[in-house]
């Protein structure tokens, strides 16, 4: 089966985001950008399924600016076979992304689409579920284990109370949680090889999808700041503080 892996270019998780002084958004100029960490986990899972002989081809897709090519090259260097960039400088919301991905899925007919559970910039946690709805497929979200068994995929999910397993008919949607795997680093030879792997560039208009945003960001502000309190010298002082707070008698 073919596996489709949508990957998003986002602020690197090690960078502390700074709100722009004019309140229009987060300052991304001269900030390190990387593949969304959950999407690295998605790429890794697809590669492992290919190594097991379950998957035959891995196609990485990104919707974003020309620079998202770098993110796709990273996916190719990890082991994806080819890539599609749907290039736009406009911000595309999860609903628009899901609509574009649904068109790509129509064309590519994958057995699985593996996405991240959440993009660490918008923190929406929506795209995979929306894509599943648009395609009318089953969804195994927040996955910590994925097992393909013929026409069924068993997905163990991280839920509020612990873990839950669902069986889905394929084709299906999976979204990754942190414990699914530990993504590999691309080796230097593979980074070189990735440069010659196919990367097709498209535009949202090629898919005839209206991706105009439904949410308008009116302003972006910093959260209220917490100020550091005092340090206590020892455990006795801490006990006294806990008493003052009323949490111990």
């Amino acid at each position: 089966m073919k596996i489709l892996v949508p990957v998003k270019r986002v602020i690197d998780y090690n960078v502390k985001p700074r709100v722009k002084a004019d309140g229009t958004g987060v300052d991304l100029s001269n900030v390190k950008m990387s593949m969304n960490p959950f999407d690295e986990i998605a790429v890794e899972e697809a590669i492992r399924l290919k190594e097991k002989g379950v998957a035959s081809e891995i196609v990485a897709v990104s919707i974003g600016p020309a620079k998202a090519q770098e993110t796709l090259r990273t996916a190719l260097a990890m082991g994806a076979d080819r890539a599609i960039l749907i290039q736009t400088d406009d911000e595309v919301e999860p609903l628009g992304v899901a609509k574009l991905l649904a068109k790509v899925a129509d064309e590519e007919a994958p057995g699985l689409v593996i996405l991240g559970k959440q993009a660490i910039d918008d923190d929406s946690n929506q795209t995979g579920q929306m894509l599943a709805a648009l395609l009318g497929w089953g969804q195994g979200t927040f996955a910590s284990k994925v097992e393909v068994d013929g026409d069924t995929v068993n997905v163990t999910r991280e839920v509020d109370g612990g873990l839950e397993t669902v069986a889905l008919n394929t084709p299906a949607i999976v979204t990754t949680d942190l414990r699914l795997n530990e993504p590999r680093y691309a080796s230097l030879p593979n980074i070189m090889k990735a440069k010659s792997k196919p990367l097709a560039t498209k535009a949202p208009a090629d898919y005839g999808v209206d991706v105009a945003p439904r949410l308008k960001t009116l302003s972006v502000a910093e959260p209220p700041k917490r100020v550091a309190g005092a340090k206590v010298a020892d455990v006795d002082e801490l006990v006294a503080k806990l008493k003052a707070l009323g949490v111990v008698a």
Binding site: I11, P17, V19, V26, D123, A221, P223
Partner: peptide
């Protein structure tokens, strides 16, 4: 958004 570092309206 951004791990709570930016509050969007």
């Amino acid at each position: 958004t951004y791990a709570g570092n930016a509050i969007a309206t």
